[in-house]
Design a protein around this nucleic acid. Structure first.
Length: 236
DNA sequence: TCATTAAATTGTT
DNA sequence: AACAATTTAATGA
């Protein structure tokens, strides 16, 4: 397993226009603040299994997913590994840690080859200080994530694998947290298995149940959500 | 552009 | 876990 303490520093690129387009909050900025963001944004590639940040490291970046899929989990060196959530394109995380200027409290690792953007902590605070719209974005982000974690606590108590898959999928399609995810989510059944904590076979079985219920459509290399509300309610 | 091959992903036991 | 079937991606004419 590759451990890169400062992945974006070492292999940083300038973001391409297409990559910038995948950063939702950039559209909220203009003038000098936008210039500041553009000047300090970095992007880098992450390979599957690669850790972007680890528990205990000083928080230096606000991270966002441009393409690919990441997962957020606790430390697996002691006890059971618990995946908190997956982070699809358009998702940004670490703002709570940056606000308090603390160390990361979770690991982030890539589930498949991904493109990750990073905004340095200094720029993050400059944007917070100067832009109401940016504050609003971060506030919504925090609020929605809080709700998601509360929902995740309930989901973890559920032992029915079909329901767990449905709830996790609904979380991945969250429109506020992950505006980059359309109705089409590119995730393999293997990746979903890692995320939910089930075998690929069981995920396959669950997906077919959800497909039979007309909630999703299974496609090669991913799936399409037909009924997000139905996914949230599935099994209740 | 098309045919062939390799790789990835899904479906099933 | 293993295997077959299917889809996509890569290659070269």
């Amino acid at each position: 397993m590759v451990d890169t303490a400062l992945p974006l520093r070492q292999r940083a690129r300038r973001p391409t226009p297409a990559e910038l387009d995948a950063i939702p909050w950039l559209k909220l900025l203009d003038g000098p603040l936008r210039e500041r963001a553009l000047a300090t944004l970095e992007v880098g590639d992450a390979q599957p299994g690669e850790r972007l940040c680890r528990i205990g490291r000083p928080a230096t970046f606000w991270f966002g997913v441009v393409d690919g899929l990441l997962k957020m989990n606790n430390d697996d060196s002691l006890g059971q590994a618990v995946t908190f959530t997956g982070v699809p394109p358009g998702g940004w995380f670490g703002e709570g840690t940056l606000l308090k200027r603390e160390c990361y409290r979770y690991n982030i690792q890539a589930l498949r080859p991904s493109i990750v953007a990073g905004l340095p902590i200094d720029s993050f605070h400059v944007l917070l200080d100067g832009s109401i719209a940016f504050n609003r974005f971060v506030l919504d982000q925090l609020n929605e994530r809080l709700g998601q974690f509360i929902a995740a606590r309930e989901t973890d108590r559920i032992h029915d694998p079909d329901v767990r898959v449905a709830r996790n999928l609904a979380a991945l399609f969250h429109p506020t947290l992950y505006p980059g995810v359309g109705s089409w989510l590119r995730i393999t059944q293997q990746e979903l298995g890692y995320l939910v904590g089930l075998s690929r076979q069981r995920v396959n079985q669950a997906l077919h149940r959800l497909s039979d219920a007309k909630l999703i459509r299974i496609e090669y290399g991913g799936l399409r959500v037909l009924d997000l509300q139905g996914l949230r309610r599935f099994g209740t």
